[in-house]
Design a protein around this nucleic acid. Sequence first.
DNA 1: ATGAAAGCGCTAACAG
DNA 2: CTGTTAGCGCTTTCAT
Lengths: 416, 416
Amino acid sequence: MKKLLTGTEKLCRLWSKRFDPSLALVLRAVGGEELDFRCEMELVLERFDPMQATIKDVARRAGVSVSTVSLVINNSGPVSPETRQKVLRAIEELGYHPRRFARSLASKRTGNIGFILTSDHFSRAEPFYTKIFLGSEFEARNYDYYILLTTVEKRGKNAGQLPRFLLERNVDGVIFAGYVPVPLVERVYELGVPFVLVDFLVKDRPFSCIVMDNDQAVRRAVGHLVAEHGHRRIAFVAGEIGHPSIRARLEGYRKGLEDFGIPRDPRLERTEEPHCSMDGGYRATRRMLEEKLEFTAVVTANDATAFGVMRALKEAGLRIPEDVAVVGFDDIDAASQVDPTLTTLRVPKEEMGALALRRLVEVIERPGLAFERTVVPTELVLRESCCGRARAPKLMDLTKEKIILPEGGDVDNTQA
Amino acid sequence: MKKLLTGTEKLCRLWSKRFDPSLALVLRAVGGEELDFRCEMELVLERFDPMQATIKDVARRAGVSVSTVSLVINNSGPVSPETRQKVLRAIEELGYHPRRFARSLASKRTGNIGFILTSDHFSRAEPFYTKIFLGSEFEARNYDYYILLTTVEKRGKNAGQLPRFLLERNVDGVIFAGYVPVPLVERVYELGVPFVLVDFLVKDRPFSCIVMDNDQAVRRAVGHLVAEHGHRRIAFVAGEIGHPSIRARLEGYRKGLEDFGIPRDPRLERTEEPHCSMDGGYRATRRMLEEKLEFTAVVTANDATAFGVMRALKEAGLRIPEDVAVVGFDDIDAASQVDPTLTTLRVPKEEMGALALRRLVEVIERPGLAFERTVVPTELVLRESCCGRARAPKLMDLTKEKIILPEGGDVDNTQA
DNA sequence: ATGAAAGCGCTAACAG
DNA sequence: CTGTTAGCGCTTTCAT
């Protein structure tokens, strides 16, 4: 049985909720008679309320209904210019901002995007994925989205488990960065939640993704080593060969050799390490040296690996690049800070993150959009580790770093 | 005038909302007679609904009211063990998860925390603040919070402007990382939104913050250079002297010299560069060399600066550390990857981020908690750039890096 | 210990 | 073009 509240009672509740419960008690004591001061009180509240204005306040002040205000806010419907002006002014005067969660509840859209990567990538805090994340984050603002980042286990019991924000329906879409568990991707797909992969793709599945031209990139690097520097004995060092990108890089290395009719030497393909890390590069190189293999250049699966390679070479008393040239992949910050500076394939990390975000927003806003694969080009950045100190640009001329773009030949300068 | 909806009408709406509007039309055509299939239909929905179960579904299935379910979920109220079991089972069976935004609307708590740093720090993507962020992010999960990251302008028209998530009331508290505009901090303070500063503090304000023992750290480093290696001519290179942390490091440098009665030489205090960057370090060092200043060691304000210093020294044909020793600050990843590896002061970045998160959650959950300043200790990590290759640990023994802890030294590490 | 009911602030369908 | 109204899914008195 619904009990009608008296004016005073309502008021008490209001105060008790929005201010201090003790004030409500005072009011209760004072308000012996039942008056409907609702309206006056709301005006009072408007002036003293420590809480932000609501859509109701705006409506009252503008002398229109809440729906009209909503239409104005969302630009979703015809509103006469005068009314719009009134509403806009009220919003301005009250400093009104719609609350995110209230909109979410009513509209089923959260304005959040989930960013998922493996704890592996996270805990090793690889600058590579950090950059991608930052790229997405930055772009997200342009579309008025927030990004919620989380990590998942690559394997083990929790591997297929949905992140919290999906269970709580707290995101409108998801970006997967790097090598995530395929079952997880499939589950998200089944849930019907829009998603995009970055630097990853699922075999035999046409999911939307943003990847680099991994194989062509390495192929180009090998081409440079052979054509410009006359290398013939070129090694390839990588780990984590399960990652599609890494595998593609190996393929690119092979194609590169093939382009020049150089026979493959399996002993120079070092993919035995579990990770593409500095440690992995170091150990693999030590082993090659111990096996007395001949090589004058090393192409690696990423910059971290290259650092390990360089370290091992130096410890063995070999000069870089005079005795052995080294090429990395990614162009992380440290690549231009090590000595000698590292020739590497620059991946447009932030740009990839931004691209992923844009594509995801598209899908969110136009459900049923077809999957699409985007391949972004990398650039070969020539530095000391393959060209030598004399020929490579000096530190302070970063803008003049020589860069070989995928499209053209030896295009000079221009840093992206 | 409220119009009562018939059973069919209700059903149509339901379907139209939760499924496909076209289905609703079909139903409308079929349901000529007015039946109240509400109950049956809800059971049907329960089985086929692509949407997640709601608290109502749980209540119905458990045969209790929604309030009881709420009590169970939040552990906020007395519920008989049997009822609790029933509810828990229903939740389990339905795979129910409360929606974040619905809770927010009802409870006024969002479960989000804002993370604010300047676009400066962001766009230069300094690994330092990235690590702090990751530390907070990781810890946030333990407390069931999400982190929303955003950047603000350090200066200019937008400098004092509130980030979106504050306007939209989309966070329960805020973490400020690094040097943010003081007016912004003050505004957040006035808004009554809980906040914590990391690696920053506002002069003459007792705001809660997590900072390192900047001055003591550098003092210890100087002490090491003097006591262990006999240096007397020690330079200090930094930029961005407005940042409290950087200023404190300069103070530490001065104290360090004082400890050994070494007179200060203003020409060896290079703080003219705008930023603590590789470029800044490089240029400052070039200038010192051009001015023919004598120095056998350089203490820098951060690792990036140190890299620039090393580069300039090498270009000048000086050996590190034989001719000049170098000490950094932060211990970013690259510090152990450069050649020679960099002696530096390790800042527990992730730990600081986590600490900030914990402190913030405390404040959020117990409003009115007093401000508190936390000083975390740094460690002096000895590597090749001051000890030389022979004495410093080899690459692969990272765990055996020699570390001097603040406690172990002869210095007092309390900071006001 | 449990349930009924009143919101939280907003959107969107629908009626005028 | 504008207003009325019914929710969205949950929390939180308050009464029982």
